[in-house]
Design a protein around this nucleic acid. Structure first.
Length: 576
RNA sequence: GCGCCUGUAGCUCAGCUGGAUAGAGCAACGGUUUUCUAAACCGUGGGUCAGGAGUUCGAAUCUCUUCAGGCGCGCCA
């Protein structure tokens, strides 16, 4: 019906209104046909008359009086009313209303038109946490978000590739290797261990796990930690340098082992969280700047030719010419590349892989980096419109009303694994997704864990479980579940069905805006309406002639809840 | 200083490509179980949508401004 009414409205605009071409175009774009939010306003609502009257400076009633007879002549439409400031409320016949539901249930894209389902190749890069330690609860939000928009975009017909960018080159990895080395050979007494090294207990686990035949003597240890600089960051750099020079074989063994260990544990945590990546892209695969044939060298050479210059011994990218606030160093004075240079090569690699759109999910603290990377993309000759950055804000964890303290420095932080073990992957995902991603989230573990009525997650699951239970009992009576609505006049289901119809529109707008929280709120809405219905209608004891439509309603609501939860990566519960 | 984000009921938040009386959950108070799961439902109270100005037939929504809060502004990653 949506497409049919839309077509009638567009035809009306084209043929029956005296507007110029530009106005008609505006009108077609601005007019909206939406599901009415209350059945008192009919089944469908259009604002066409309001917009048209605005453009043509005529009374909305005059537009309506021309439009209404056209709509009412259609056999599926029972009546059309002009209401409020100029809305058109369309009331369908019962047969047409119920037919929409059967159709939408059979075809999950029933209300989407062809332009909505045009296939795009979309890449989503998310999490991408540095492989220097376990994922913490902050990463969990990005993981839940990236995976959910992936599922939503797939539902809308797009081809989605999920990627994790592994920063396995650079200083932090050196710090990781150094930290393991120091623990492995117990170079420091417990409280002397440098603050600038990673102090988390996982470093000890890695040190325990690694098997190295050679050891180092007490004298060697002493000389290693002798005459260290005063400043924290300098201490770790000095240690790295000394170990690399004196123990190069052991260093690379430890480095490779540690990196592999951390990446494996990250992957395990994500798998537990039901987030699976199609591709793990290693920064190291871009090669070294010293190798002229490496991918990073080639990428840099390309921009260097036209959009870079030398200043103070470093090579600068003219990013300010492409919208950045200032120019940026891509090759340092000492000849090493910057983080941006690797990222530049990485983005070139991604864009060359033929995606229509690449989506970068970043922590919100990186928002200052957006202009820079956009400028880099433009400088390389691509369009920044191909890339979309989605920011994810930090999540604050609360327990019993007080904030859970987290200190990354000391290694004393709340890990994602702990959260999943605590409340399960599904409830975690649900709460992560319960608020717009780019805004601060207060995540109350106490509530998420509780069986109390303020736990919204269970409120929704309970609706699904209740329907499952009724279905089971219905089948136990030896009946079969209906596959269509019949023509019964029973209308108690209609409010609930009207909401069920909205599912496809919610998925569409949540995909277009990349906002999964719209689905969370929709789930709350439909669950609430179901619970009301359940309390009002004694389902299994209802009149036989009504029972068909009631059961059909429940099947549809259950399927809408299940498929909406699926978009969030959550398994519906059959019983509670 | 510059840039981005936020300010809606006591609390946590929806609503923001302008539209019909501003919503929900929790908290408070009062009800509902001989009946399919009471992790539910019903009812009552609660708002100058931070303040001000502007655009419009119409503003929580758009523009400007003030105030309050968060974040970012490296030859770090």
């Amino acid at each position: 019906m949506y497409n049919q009414i839309s077509a009638s409205l567009n035809e009306f605009i084209d043929n029956k209104l005296s507007l110029d071409a530009g106005q008609k175009k505006t009108l077609r774009k601005k007019q909206k046909l939406t599901l009415s939010d209350s059945l008192k306003k009919g089944h469908w609502t259009s604002n066409l008359c309001l917009i048209a009257s605005n453009l043509a400076k005529i009374n909305p009633q005059d537009v309506a009086s021309a439009l209404i007879p056209i709509l009412e002549s259609q056999s599926e439409i029972a009546k059309v009313e002009l209401a409020g400031p100029g809305f058109i409320n369309i009331f369908l016949t019962r047969e047409a209303f119920l037919a929409q539901l059967d159709n939408a249930h059979d075809d999950p894209s029933y209300f989407l038109n062809s332009s909505d389902t045009s296939k795009e190749k979309i890449q989503i890069e998310f999490v991408s946490a540095n492989p220097t330690g376990p994922l913490h609860v902050g990463h969990g939000r990005g993981a839940a978000y990236g995976d959910a928009i992936g599922r939503i975009l797939e539902r809308l017909g797009h081809e989605v590739s999920r990627e994790y960018y592994v920063n396995d080159a650079g200083r932090q990895i050196d710090i990781l290797a150094c930290s393991i080395f120091l623990r492995k050979f117990e170079c420091f007494d417990g409280d002397q261990f440098p603050d600038s090294a990673y102090k988390g207990s996982y470093i000890l686990d890695i040190a325990d796990a690694i098997e190295i035949n050679i050891g180092i003597t007490q004298a060697e240890k002493e000389s290693l930690i002798k005459d260290l600089p005063d400043e924290n960051e300098e201490i770790i750099d000095a240690l790295i340098k000394r170990i690399k020079i004196n123990y190069s074989d052991t260093w690379s063994t430890i480095r490779d082992f540690g990196l592999d260990f951390v990446i494996r544990s990250i992957r395990e945590d994500l798998t537990k969280f039901k987030v699976v990546f199609d591709n793990w892209f290693f920064e190291s695969s871009l090669g070294e700047l010293s190798d002229k044939k490496s991918e990073i060298s080639k990428a840099l050479a390309k921009v260097q030719k036209d959009h870079a210059y030398e200043k103070n011994g470093a090579i600068w990218l003219e990013s300010s010419k492409f919208g950045d606030d200032k120019d940026r160093v891509i090759i340092r004075e000492d000849g090493r590349g910057t983080y941006l240079s690797a990222d530049l090569a990485y983005h070139r690699n991604k864009l060359d892989r033929g995606f229509d759109t690449i989506i970068n999910v970043w922590g919100a603290d990186h928002h200052g980096y957006i202009k820079r990377i956009e400028a880099t993309i433009e400088a390389m000759g691509y369009s920044k419109k191909q890339m979309q950055v989605q920011l994810v804000q930090f999540a604050n964890l609360f327990e019993d009303g007080s904030k859970v303290k987290m200190s990354t420095r000391s290694g004393n932080f709340y890990t994602l694994k702990k959260l999943i073990d605590d409340i399960g992957p599904d409830a975690s995902r649900f709460y992560y997704l319960s608020k717009q991603a780019d805004q601060h989230l207060d995540f109350d573990i106490g509530i998420a864990r509780s069986n109390s009525k303020d736990n919204l997650y269970y409120y929704i699951q309970y609706a699904h479980a209740r329907i499952s239970s009724v279905e089971k009992k219905f089948l136990e009576l030896g009946k079969t579940l209906p596959e269509k609505f019949n023509d019964a006049k029973f209308e108690n289901c209609d409010e609930l069905l009207q909401i069920a119809l909205n599912a496809q529109f919610i998925v569409k707008s949540s995909g277009e805006s990349l906002q999964p929280h719209l689905i969370v709120y929709y789930l709350k809405d439909i669950a609430q309406n179901f619970h009301q219905f359940y309390n009002n209608v004694n389902i299994l004891n209802a009149d036989e002639e009504h029972k068909n439509n009631i059961m059909r309603t429940l099947i549809i609501v259950k399927s809408v809840i299940a498929s909406s939860l699926d978009l969030l990566g959550i398994e519906p519960l059959e019983s509670m």
